[in-house]
Amino acid sequence: MAFESLRIEVIGNVTLFDLIVFGISVLAAAVIAKVVAIYLKKSLSDRVQPKEMDFLVRIIQAAIIILGVYLALPSFDINLADMLVVGGTMGLVIAFASQRIVSNFGSGLFLIAERPMKPGDSVNIGTVSGTVEEIRVLSTIIKTHEGVYVRVPNEKIFTSEITNYVANVARRFEYTIGISYRSDAAKAIRIIRGLLDDHPFVLRHPAPSVFVDTLADSSVNLRVFIWAPSRVWWSVRTEMLWAIKVALEAEGVEIPFPQRVITFARDNEGSPCYDPQGDGAAHGRP
């Protein structure tokens, strides 16, 4: 009796038995995929980078599940012509019902193909700034610099301006350093050049440049341009600024506070004119 009920056709020619066989096959494929993933992680983790490992495992898991579904399909005794009609209609319905999902999916495929960023890159996308954790088919996961998890739909990323801070192998940054008018600018430049030469990650080529940029209100401004490997540029930037400040002060080069020289006019008796009323009377003006 129980076996008879399995022969009952549920959808078209598909019986309950066919559905169970299909379900078991897919489930078995999923289990095998999981077991293979664990095995791969155990055996290859010391030879493969974690990000490459995730990618590899996902591809292999997807292949196993697709193979499982493919092997299970004959149990349905499917007519391909019917499949096309039903599939086409279903596709239209799904497409209308889930435009945003399809849009995100398409954007995700373009992002994966175009590769404007990859996991580990430091990026700015619209108002979100942080490190790319994962690029999924529908969304991208960003970890902000504060450590906050942000999920950005791929459609939004695709239409936003993406700034990738580490896409190029090297990048430039700059400082403006003000020294007093009394200090020797040539000496300051020599000191800064010495520091830049000593730092391993201040690139030899393109060479750094240091020059007098402006004669400002309170200081002579030196401009320092430095190229560094993108992977370490931030640490170089923070290290070098303080190192320059300390070295300049140690060599007697003054880094001044903003200042203004005020000259008081003197009256005939030699005392400074003071005009508490502010009406010009102290200067003999009416």
């Binding site: 192998v169 090297a170 030899r204 080529h205 190229w227």
Partner: peptide, 21 residues
């Protein structure tokens, strides 16, 4: 020895290199 690094090629497609003069 004190290390020093450099860039061979362009920032977009070049290579960071350990520089030996």
């Amino acid at each position: 020895a004190r290390p020093k690094y450099s860039l061979y090629g362009t920032p977009e497609k070049g290579f960071i290199t350990r520089h030996v003069e």
